[in-house]
């Protein structure tokens, strides 16, 4: 199931002239969402950048039906909307929550956790730009270690909260990570999620030029570097099976990973870390811990494959 760019119609996937900053990863992500689902989806958007980039009434920058809702109710509003669609007999309509990292990990977490526990048939997309960018770059629980924000101006001292693992622990039917740097991978994951009934969670890494302090032309490049350095492994967990995405599989070997400084030096928010080797070592240790978790998950969710691998070595 590959994406053929030539066959995709030349629609307006996002309306040009919206209020997003130049090089915005969120409008990129919204375009891929429409490429994957066509006209068959409804978006539920809690407060955040995505509710601002729609622009000024009576025009709307997003080419999809949108329900704007408060932070703490995104997943529950989507659950109700899905129930209404079921009553109307429209079973093939996807209800998509498009929330930022604050709306997912901090303020909207109780609604997300509740919807995952009830196994509502919705797609929850966390657009992770790693801080509260809309209100002026404040720290969120998904800001990585060492990153500058306006509330952690000497660098954050805690590591990032791992929401995809929390969603796997909730027993969600589909959990995946994606980045705007690899659009076809994200579109394929969205299409695969549409075929599964139950709670679907996709974590989309969205490098923000304004908050991460880099050149807007490099949005895609930084998304790709996050995967190449091993900091953000792309994986897919579907109905009890865990597997690394093909794009991330080669970075399981630490020798093949791009040095983390390549990723850090492009971003102004990590500028103070570059001449501190002990801080960079801490980020490298974090990457190792991320891959240790991936290894544990692979073994835990594919016991048969592991047993076969053992038999082959004997």
């Amino acid at each position: 199931m590959t994406v053929n760019l030539k066959k995709l119609p030349d629609h307006k996937y996002v309306m040009p002239g919206n209020a997003a900053c130049p090089g915005c990863p969120e409008t990129m992500g919204m375009r891929y969402l429409k490429m994957a689902y066509g006209d068959n989806f409804v978006m539920v958007i809690p407060a955040g950048c995505s509710s601002v980039i729609q622009g000024i009434w009576p025009k709307n920058g997003i080419n999809a039906p949108v329900l704007n809702i408060v932070f703490a109710a995104a997943a529950s509003a989507a659950s109700g909307m899905k129930a209404a669609f079921d009553m109307l007999g429209k079973k093939d309509v996807q209800v998509v929550v498009w929330a930022g990292d604050g709306g997912t990990g901090d303020i909207g977490f109780q609604a997300l956790s509740g919807a995952a526990e009830r196994d509502e048939d919705i797609v929850y997309i966390c657009v992770d730009n790693e801080a509260y960018m809309n209100t002026g770059i404040q720290r969120s629980s998904l800001t990585p270690y060492g990153a500058w924000t306006t509330t952690t101006w000497t660098g954050k001292k805690e590591h990032k909260k791992n929401i995809p693992l929390i969603m796997i622990a909730h027993g969600a039917k589909y959990v995946a990570t994606a980045t705007v740097g690899y659009p076809t991978d994200f579109i394929e994951k969205l299409q695969r999620a549409a075929k599964i009934r139950g709670f679907k969670y996709i974590h989309l890494l969205a490098p923000c030029p304004v908050g991460w302090r880099f050149d807007p032309a490099k949005t895609g490049e930084i998304g790709q570097l996050a995967v190449k350095t091993g900091l953000f492994p792309l994986f897919e967990y579907a109905e009890g099976k865990f597997q690394l995405s093909p794009l991330s599989r080669r970075y399981k070997d630490p020798a093949k990973r791009v040095p983390i400084t390549e990723y850090l030096k492009l971003q102004g928010r990590f500028r103070h870390l570059l001449n501190k080797p002990e801080e960079i070592k801490k980020i490298e240790e974090y990457i190792d811990s991320v891959w240790y978790m991936i290894d544990v998950l692979e073994k835990a969710f594919n016991p048969q494959a592991e047993a076969q691998k053992l038999l082959r070595t004997l």
């Binding site: 040009p16 002239g17 209020a19 009576p58 025009k59 709307n60």
Partner: peptide, 11 residues
């Protein structure tokens, strides 16, 4: 509001 180009003016 309805989807239309230029919701933030001529960008």
């Amino acid at each position: 509001s309805k989807p239309a180009p230029g919701s933030a003016g001529k960008t």
